[in-house]
Design a protein around this nucleic acid. Sequence first.
DNA 1: CAAGATTGATGGTTCAATCTTC
DNA 2: GAAGATTGAACCATCAATCTTG
Lengths: 167, 167
Amino acid sequence: MNLGPIDHVQAQWQTARPELDTRSIAVFGRIDRLSKLAQAEGKKLLESLGTSPWEYEVLVTLRRAAPDFELAPRQLSEALLVSAGALTNRLDHLERAQLVERHPDPTDRRALRVRLTPRGRARADELVDAYLRRERALLDGLNARERRSLEGLLRKLLMTVEPVVTA
Amino acid sequence: MNLGPIDHVQAQWQTARPELDTRSIAVFGRIDRLSKLAQAEGKKLLESLGTSPWEYEVLVTLRRAAPDFELAPRQLSEALLVSAGALTNRLDHLERAQLVERHPDPTDRRALRVRLTPRGRARADELVDAYLRRERALLDGLNARERRSLEGLLRKLLMTVEPVVTA
DNA sequence: CAAGATTGATGGTTCAATCTTC
DNA sequence: GAAGATTGAACCATCAATCTTG
């Protein structure tokens, strides 16, 4: 049994506060750490390709909104779990870089439609290829059965967590 | 089969770029989303208790460093995956609130020892109790067997990811 | 009065530069 | 010269306030 940083955390609690039930740390501590490590690694990759995580997220979210590559800012902020103000800022940058365009919504004059430009689409395609290749490499340690099992358990956990936060 | 937001992402890619291998998203997309949702929920809880995630992290990391409740800033920044500058900032706040104290390291005059005050220790105990109670509630949807299985798979995945990033 | 988007203030992080000590 | 800690600039986030339109 190879001991990782989270096992160490649990062992420390066992000494410091033996009565504490730290079983949840074995799950959420690892999820948190995996997320941070994968993000740090993804950031390095994206920066080597001349972009950043926040730019990448917007581009690929629009890219998979085929066939028209359009979404409202509101939809983007909900999908990415960031505030509306953050999105305005990201769109300003992306529009200056001519990767997206803001168009008025024909049915609601309060709203916008954010659309990927051809350049933005090409950029998104290039980036997502590299990004997914890297993610697959990080999954190398698991075989197909383990990966599917992990996937199913995460889906089930997410089903519990999602409504709690949305509520 | 209940469809969640990540299943939706994969379905979108299936339409937009059918040739793309998106299996890694089923794992990392969910880990990322779980982390963000759990963090948002944790932030709300901590703010209702008069504190913040970054303050909480430092306090509990020192708390479980029993028996002396001491760590060097460098150890803290590595454990929490934040920069040394961020830590200086956090410690300034916590020291003003009299929850930690900075002491000179007796063996190395460059270094510091950060120590929890009695007030800081009591605060950490109070916070970790509430925090772990909330985490356990989020795990309610999984039975004991599923939780242990998830735990093992996450540990194995972390063993692959950890060295890649550290390198 | 509610909803979509923007703006400005504030907050915390990273990163590079600096200072001291090993 | 390298390592520990601090500082300040730049960056991007949230949040509350604002403006327009439904």
